[in-house]
Nucleic acid binder design. Structure first.
Length: 343
DNA sequence: ATGGTTTTTACTGCGTC
DNA sequence: GACGCGGTAAAAACCAT
């Protein structure tokens, strides 16, 4: 029972109930030495004689987990030892949480007296939990981040970093004068870019309650004040999403990425919008792989005008033709790579 | 605020199905 | 004739200064 002892939470009464039952299910065999009753000691994984203390069997329990995991993410998912702390909850999930069901640890209903008591505890616990304005602020912001992230299909780690960024903004008193929505949106935008799964400003502001203007202002502010290091979005990171939205093949995806790489090496990408480049690459790739996709379809999923796609994709194809010179250019660029966004 | 750059809007012409 | 595509000019948006 060490596992449940370390927990302060009583989130899952039924599981512990099962464990109890399992434990009382003892062997009733007799000792080979003195015929005394044998007892199973589940704590140490031994079967011992109750009379003479002879250990009949030992190490019969595998103390390791009964599951297997092949990477750390899987391990996180399967391990149920302790509650993981998470930045997605305003108190990192460490505060006491009183269940809403009026049941005790064994799943039995409480008496009405107990119920009243628990209700009072719940009230007070909630008041302490979200005591000051910062906590309440954070709570709302994290809810907002969560909502937007799911609307955009962003993975959990992005939400986590967004939470961290927001938390930092809060700690550095960056909030006054700015809306909670604005800052949470900016935090999400920043973390999505940091994680290499960027969403364009348009996409973000579509699910956010704040307009694009406020978002960009807040975003810039946050990035500056927290000195976050966010590189300009890599066009390639948009490609997989666009290709899949257009039902393109892996072949097309690879081709698009190759085009972008050669374009980058030719130095024609600087100053151009990454989304536009990605869209153009996807379109160009669809031509090269004979997968019919129209410009308007690409412009639809990428939210980029057809004109931009036209302009970019021509440049991409030209760059591809002068491919052999990449290597030289690459070397030249790398020696003076400090300013590849110069303009 | 300003100037330079990029993107968008709107419109037109051309070829094909 | 609708559609996909290409081009252009002017407006709008963006960015560093």
């Amino acid at each position: 029972m060490t596992e449940s002892d370390t927990r302060t939470q009583t989130r899952n009464p039924t599981q512990e109930q099962e464990q109890k039952q399992h434990q009382s299910d003892e062997d009733i065999r007799t000792c080979p030495e003195c015929d005394g009753r044998l007892a199973t000691d589940t704590e140490h994984g031994e079967t011992v004689c109750g009379d003479c203390g002879l250990v009949v069997e030992e190490d019969e329990i595998d103390h390791g987990p009964e599951w297997r995991a092949f990477d750390s993410a899987e391990r996180d998912k399967k391990s149920r030892v302790g509650a993981p702390t998470t930045n997605m909850m305003h108190d990192k999930g460490l505060s006491t949480n009183i269940g809403w069901q009026d049941k005790d640890a064994y799943g039995r209903s409480l008496s009405s007296r107990q119920r009243e008591k628990m209700q009072r505890l719940r009230t007070w616990n909630e008041r302490f939990r979200t005591r000051d304005s910062k906590e309440r602020n954070l709570k709302q912001a994290l809810g907002e981040i969560d909502r937007m992230a799911s609307a955009l299909g962003l993975p959990e780690n992005v939400r986590e970093t967004a939470s961290v960024i927001y938390r930092r903004a809060l700690e550095e008193d960056l909030l006054p004068g700015r809306s909670i929505e604005g800052v949470s949106t900016a935090a999400l935008y920043a973390s999505a870019r940091q994680a290499g799964t960027p969403r364009s400003l348009d996409e973000i502001s579509r699910v956010s309650r704040v307009g694009k203007m406020e978002l960009t202002r807040t975003y810039r502010y946050i990035v500056r004040e927290l000195s976050l290091e966010i590189q300009p979005a890599d066009p390639e990171s948009y490609v997989p999403r666009f290709v899949s939205q257009l039902d393109g093949s892996d072949e097309a995806e690879r081709t698009a990425k190759r085009l972008l790489r050669s374009a980058k090496n030719n130095g024609i990408t600087s100053g151009k919008s990454p989304v536009g480049l990605a869209a153009a690459a996807v379109y160009a790739a669809s031509l090269l792989t004979n997968e019919k996709v129209t410009q308007s379809e690409v412009s639809e999923v990428a939210n980029i005008s057809e004109v931009t796609i036209r302009n970019r994709y021509k440049e991409l194809l030209e760059a591809e033709e002068s491919a052999p010179r990449w290597i030289i250019l690459e070397l030249l660029l790398e020696s003076s790579s400090s300013q590849n966004t110069a303009h």
